[in-house]
């Protein structure tokens, strides 16, 4: 009796580190994808917490090393960011992966709430029949990371939540 109960207690205690880690604020990122067939241009905007970006790229949430959007931004900042995003994020139009080229970036907010916005553009000449999005950013850091995707395609809006378990989804038109 005693040993069975002891094992049960150990199992409960084993869950403690995960429970403690998730008492952090909500782990969230936002991705907005916009496309109109009239303009034949797709814009992809990622809003990422800067602390998460730094943690993912240089293992330190408060690192000044990459200095995104600062006059002293590191020459390797964009490449490190792209290497990371290419591992955890993609957009496919009509089944073909969009090549991610950073058009511009900006910072908003302050302190722990500072967000890094990353803008991409993609020329989509052919009519859009399917859009597949993978967004598993920061799921390598946090088990409870969730990534909201807003897709605005030819005037119709749709929202999705992607995470470690369900990292990709395809929309068809």
């Amino acid at each position: 009796m005693y040993s069975i109960l002891y094992v049960m207690i150990l199992l409960v205690e084993a869950a403690t580190p995960a429970a403690s880690a998730s008492s952090h604020p909500l782990r969230l990122s936002l991705c907005e994808i916009e496309y109109t067939s009239k303009q034949q241009l797709m814009t992809i905007n990622l809003k990422l917490f800067l602390t998460d970006v730094n943690e993912a790229l240089v293992f330190d949430p408060y690192s000044k090393e990459l200095a995104f959007c600062q006059p002293n931004e590191s020459a390797k900042a964009d490449q490190l960011l792209l290497d990371y995003l290419n591992k955890f994020f993609y957009v496919k139009t009509n089944g073909k992966k969009v090549e991610l080229k950073i058009q511009r970036k900006k910072l908003s907010g302050e302190g722990d709430n500072t967000a890094l916005w990353v803008y991409f553009e993609h020329k989509q000449g052919q009519s859009l029949t399917s859009l597949e999005i993978k967004n598993a950013v920061f799921t390598d850091l946090f088990f409870d990371q969730n990534n909201i995707v807003y897709a605005h395609i030819n005037g119709k809006s749709k929202s999705l939540m992607l995470n470690k378990k369900t990292s990709a989804h395809q929309l068809t038109f």
Binding site: S22, Q145, N146, N163, K165, T166
Partner: peptide, 14 residues
């Protein structure tokens, strides 16, 4: 695929 009628593990995705 998220089904509210199913029990989910909170340690899986939060």
């Amino acid at each position: 695929g998220f089904d509210m009628a199913e029990r989910h593990d909170p340690k899986e995705t939060g």
